[in-house]
Structures are given as structure tokens and as C-alpha cells.
């Protein structure tokens, strides 16, 4: 872990120390910036990178069509062409598995979150939404805070039946039409939840429920930036897959950016 107070990103509310050539004007400007942004003294950010080794993402499962014509989905958007000229369809399943059955998001990302005692933001977590559209969950990966409600509207003209058997959230929505709104589901326990459709076995999605309002999803290269973090001592955790959660003790400074990489 290395503290890097001297070079925060330009978007940070805190300002860099004035360089020697700036003179008095620069000093005034720096002081004004600090004084006009008092929150910057109480909130910092953490940035870094999580090592996400590439996995062999399995091929998409095909919808069952042995005894019935597959349901007609909306006009599918043309897939982007590759150099071979053949289309590459976007992944329909949001879950990939390693050979030992470890589940992870597809495409692969991680969830970085802070654990500890800190003042919780006022109000309940905002509601989230995962749609079922064209035989896929959209989005197929979601990270949420404990206490979040998630809606699962069906935008297809045929039935879906979402369910989960995971301990973090066990539920079965039943079958809802396009014009019905199933009751939102409250996620009260931290953990991972794999969503499936009982009618279309090829549909999968993944929800990671974290016990913290301070969390962020990395990009596909594993880079992350967690902003607005209150200063103090915490555990910084990284959910990489269903079997791997990394953690580090961190001390967040009153202002500035903490840079941490996870192997």
C-alpha cells in the first residue's frame, strides 16, 4: 500500500500542493480551493487495480428448441462484425464458471468495497432493476448494497420465471407477463446470488450483495476508483468470484487518494 497525497487525479475535489513557480497567486488559489470545498477534508478516495487473470469463457448455452419453435424475440440488434466478417454476439449469460465450479461475472470484473464502522448515508439504498429482454438478463451483473430492492420486469412477449437457490437470497418470482410488475425483491444478506430462469436454462445473471454503501465495480482491466470515502481505519475487500474475497486493512487519510493494488 502506498499513500499518494501529492498527485490525485484532476477530478478530485482536493488540490495538489502548489509548485515553487506559482508564487502568491497560486497559494491563494490553493487555499481558496481548500476552503470552498470543505467536504474534501472529510472524504478521500481509493484507487488501484485488481488482478483479473483471463478465464476461458465458455460458449453460450443454446435455448431449448427440440419440441417447440424458439420464442421470437424482438428484432435483435446486429452484432458487431469482426475482422472475419462474422458477427460476434454479445454474451447472454452473465455468469462464467471455472472447472471447479467457481462462479464469476462474464465479462470478468470484481467488486471493491469498504467494510467497517462508518456513518451510513441518509435514506434507503436506491432501487435497482434487472430486465429480461430477448432471452437475457440486462444487466447480467449487478453489485448492490445490503437492503437494496431489485425489480425484475419482463420485457419479452413470453414468460420468464426468475429464481435463485443461493443462501444470500432464495426466491422464486413465478411467471409474469410483460404488462405485469412482479414485486421487487429485498436483498438483506451479503453474498452472491445467481439468477436463473426456470423456462430458459441458458439465462443467467449474477448479483453481488455487499454490506457497505461504499463499493465500486472494476472495469474489465480490474481498475477501480472508490470516491467519497470517509477517513478512518477500515477493511478494503475485493469480491473476485464466488470463492475468492481478498481484503486489506487500510487507513483512509482525511484527504487525498490512497492507491492499492490487489494481486
Amino acid at each position: 500500500m502506498r499513500s499518494r497525497k501529492s498527485a490525485p487525479p484532476a477530478s478530485s475535489p482536493s488540490r495538489p500542493a502548489p509548485e515553487a513557480g506559482w508564487g502568491r497567486l497560486g497559494l491563494i488559489a490553493w487555499l481558496a480551493g481548500v476552503l470552498l470545498a470543505p467536504g474534501a477534508l472529510l472524504a478521500s478516495e481509493i484507487e488501484g487495480r485488481v488482478n483479473l487473470p483471463p478465464i476461458a469463457v465458455p460458449s453460450e448455452r443454446m435455448p431449448t428448441q427440440r419440441y417447440e419453435l424458439p420464442p421470437r424475440t424482438g428484432s435483435p440488434a446486429p452484432a458487431p462484425k469482426t475482422r472475419t466478417g462474422l458477427p460476434t454476439p454479445a454474451p447472454k449469460s452473465g455468469v462464467a464458471y471455472t472447472s471447479d465450479g467457481t462462479a464469476m461475472p462474464n465479462p470478468r470484473v470484481a467488486v471493491v468495497y469498504l467494510e467497517g464502522e462508518f456513518p451510513l448515508p441518509a435514506g434507503a439504498p436506491r432501487n435497482e432493476r434487472i430486465e429480461q429482454k430477448d432471452l437475457a438478463f440486462i444487466p447480467s451483473f449487478l453489485a448492490i448494497q445490503v437492503g437494496t430492492k431489485v425489480e425484475f420486469p419482463n420485457l419479452d412477449d413470453f414468460y420468464h420465471n426468475i429464481f435463485s437457490n443461493n443462501q444470500a437470497k432464495r426466491f422464486d418470482l413465478g411467471r409474469y407477463r410483460k404488462d405485469e410488475i412482479p414485486p421487487p425483491q429485498l436483498f438483506e444478506k451479503p453474498g452472491h446470488v445467481i439468477l436463473r430462469c426456470d423456462i430458459h436454462a441458458n439465462m443467467r445473471a449474477l448479483i453481488v450483495v455487499v454490506p457497505s454503501p461504499y463499493f465500486v465495480v472494476t472495469d474489465k482491466e480490474g481498475r477501480f476508483r472508490l470516491t467519497g470515502v470517509p477517513p478512518g481505519k477500515y477493511k478494503l475487500k475485493v469480491w473476485k468470484d464466488s470463492n475468492t474475497t481478498l481484503e486489506r486493512e487500510v487507513e483512509i487519510p482525511a484527504a487525498g487518494t490512497l492507491s492499492i493494488d490487489f494481486p
Binding site: 465458455p58 460458449s59 453460450e60 443454446m62 458477427p87 455468469v95 464458471y97 471455472t98 465450479g101 467457481t102
Partner: peptide, 24 residues
Amino acid sequence: AQAFLDAIDGALSTETMQGQVRVQ
């Protein structure tokens, strides 16, 4: 067995030619 069968589930599909030929 759930995790094991989930892993098998993914391993039993394959595709070539950018998804134009798929076997499951």
C-alpha cells in the same frame, strides 16, 4: 454438486466460426 454441475454446464458447449457453428 451444484458448483460442479454448473462448471460442467459451461464445459459442454462449444462454438467455432465466431458462433456460427455451435454444439451443445
